[in-house]
Amino acid sequence: MQTHKAKRVVITIEAIMQKRLTDTLERAGVTGYSILPVLGGSGRSGAWTREGQISRASGMVQVICIIKPERLDGLLDAAFDVVDKHIGVVTISDVEVLRAERF
């Protein structure tokens, strides 16, 4: 079956920054993304779990976008403005999709 190259960008960020990030992405023309809750983890800022957090402020979410390769730079520029100073991880990987017209 015919597949098409695309980029998958995963941004793990504090839950409180989620709306700011997705608003920025939408302004940059990235209108397709999925948001997943993060149950817990460990990193430079220590270990944490979602259970027992006093508020959403201390939790994390993952925003996942799949886009055409030529739109990657625009997305990263927009995302960087938001994530620059915050806890989080941005990764980019090559993926293949079946229906290119959707991205």
Binding site: I16, M17, S45, I54, S55, A57, S58, K85, H86, I87
Partner: peptide, 26 residues
């Protein structure tokens, strides 16, 4: 405060260490 202010501080002052202010207040 340990709910409203920590949330605001994460947005406005991301460089501040959350474990310091959360541990102190909570």
């Amino acid at each position: 405060s340990y709910i409203a202010v920590p949330a605001a501080m994460r947005v406005a002052l991301p460089e501040a260490n959350p474990s310091v202010y959360l541990t102190l207040s909570l």
